[in-house]
Design a protein around this nucleic acid. Sequence first.
RNA 1: GGGCCCGUAGCUCAAACGGAUAGAGCAUCGGAUUUCUAAUCCGAGGGUUGCAGGUUCGAUUCCUGCCGGGCCUACCA
Length: 702
Amino acid sequence: MYRHLEHRLAERLRQCLERRYLGVALPKVVVEQPPKVELGDFAIPLFPFAKPLRSAPLKIAETIRAEIGSIEGIAEMQVAPPGYLNVRIDRAWLAAALAADRKAAPDLSHGKILVEHSSINPNKAAHIGHLRNAILGDTFVRMERYAGREVDVQNYIDNTGVQVADVVVGFTHLEKKSRAEIEALARQPRFDYYCWDLYARVSQWYAEDKQNLGTRLSTLHALEEGGNETAAIAELISTAVLRRHLETMDRLDIEYDFLPRESEILHLHFWDAAFTKLKEAGVLTFENEGKNKGCWVMRRAGTADVARPLSPAKAGSGKANGREVPDDSGDQLDDRIVAIPIRPGVDIRASEIAEENQKVIVRSNGTVGYVGKDIAYHMWKFGLLGRDFGYRKSYRYPNQHDCWISTSPDDKNAEPTHPHFGDVAEIYNVIDARQSEAQSTVIEALRGLGHDEAADHYTHFSYEMVALTPRCAAELGYTLSEEDKTRSYIEVSGRKGFGVKADDLLDQLIASAKNEVDSRHPQLPDDDRRQIATQIAIGALRYFMLKYTKPSVIAFDFKDALSFEGETGPYAQYAVVRATSIFRKAEIDPETFAQNLSGNVTVADLAKYLTEDGANEIWELWLGASKTSYIIDQCIATREPAYLAKHVFQLAQLFNTFYHGHPILSEPEETRKRFLLATVGVVRRELLRALAVMGISVPPVM
RNA sequence: GGGCCCGUAGCUCAAACGGAUAGAGCAUCGGAUUUCUAAUCCGAGGGUUGCAGGUUCGAUUCCUGCCGGGCCUACCA
């Protein structure tokens, strides 16, 4: 509603100015929201027009006001110093449209969207960092679907490599378990917790004696070779842990459509196809000398060569693994080439790319690195690779929705008929900010291949990490260094087992909510109370992860995360529950009522009650309720779901104030009572919608 | 060294394109209608937006330089 009105206003204003000032190049008309309702509903600053039109902003505003004529849905315009044109909406018009719930036709002309999120390494339990990722991703998916777009959700599974090998080492060497014993453990309810601890123990074991790293290396080789006991154990572990991740996310109503696995990208030789194309296009160059001698390299994204001496390369540490990035300073796999200091003044440009700007894609031993595989995978996403995965069903959600997983096409379980994944128009990769460089490299590779359009529709949906406050770390029983105690936050580390597990947090939230529900509604059956507590817990968690803007590091603290008061999910849920209880008491079904709002309140009544003295407060409520689509558009355009969280909170806040100040069922005047009920109905409907887009459902009572 | 991000109230965070008196929550203190449930509402205190310049009608926002903090920067996966 609000959205269409805004567009119409901007368009009419532009036309008006063009007519009045023929042949003058005009700046874009921006429509803002005045700081207070008393000033109006839209504000157009006219300062940018002063210079091109050679006229004072106030004068331009006056001209527009006099000449623009009438616009459907706009009641009046006022000129406000120092240079605004303030516009009032025709309140009855907007309210009637909102009551009728007229919807715009969805725009399906853009093609399919692919959102990749979660992408947790299948070697340990999911933690709060993964929760932020999955909740951001899932909410973005819901927003795009709300806007009418077709979306596929993928969760990339890095089931090969060091992090899985480490857990295998833990089982086979530290615990000396047989495959059958591991299989039995993998059937335990929280096998991922077991792996979490084991993973940390293995890291410790490596640190104790560097000799132990030999075991890791040989395990890794066995894994890569495949067809042996070690590979079978790795497969069984990663599959079991993946299943746990799917269950954990399912608790939060997060579902996936397809799980592409790195093992298939390897075995189906996606890379070979990509490699050929990359060489042909000259994206990769072969190094004949220098530190990267014998490698195929690419220019690091965002770098340009200038003839200047290099500073000696610094020895890095830590290790990355797939979508997850270094989480410690371990250097156990330290078999890299030691950087050779370069004398100042020496031109080291052995190839066209300065050494410091080279990103190794294919190693001198001929094997491809992570970024290379990612390039191939993204060519597949855009349908540019000429190869496809095999598919089979993997996980069925309680709502009967199937999640598919990649497999080899000649796998006997591969299904000949399957949904068509990949070959999409637009992609969003929800991956934290630490992966910016790798993501940019993939985009540049696509560009280098001549796929500019694909590159332009590739979005790294970047956000900052979740860290722990020192207090939180202490509560969890970790001993902190003096330095750590002074920090505002400390990075979590899966390798050290340092972090808050997703299921633990959810369990705590549910337990805490259950306590409240138990004391408030002792008469309800326990199952109902548990269900309500779960909804509240999910609401609290999802809201918590969404209320921070993406570039902000979340310094996690149980006190804030476990709060159900103030700016939280339960606050918004509670507003809806109060609205529902009004209807319950009135013995009106709120859904039926919402569907026939226009039949319950006339335009004349709306006009009367929304414009009388003191109506501003209620008008703000209608205005806020009309903004859902507008806000979601903003969120999509800026890729910032936090705006929706803010909006939901503000609307709930307005409603709570209204609820407190306006007794509804005891209202003596019948038409006014119906109007107030309509207000409650509209706000309730829009709050429920906005919350649903955030993945938050509302219990019947709280 | 280079790249990216952050610095706003005691704490945690907002402020879309530069706009009107920089806003919320938590915490603190003081209050609230026997009503549609107080997971609520009302009020109070709390700010030189890290520092210094610049751009302009106007800067928390853009530019430059400092200060402080974080992340990334391997032939790993």
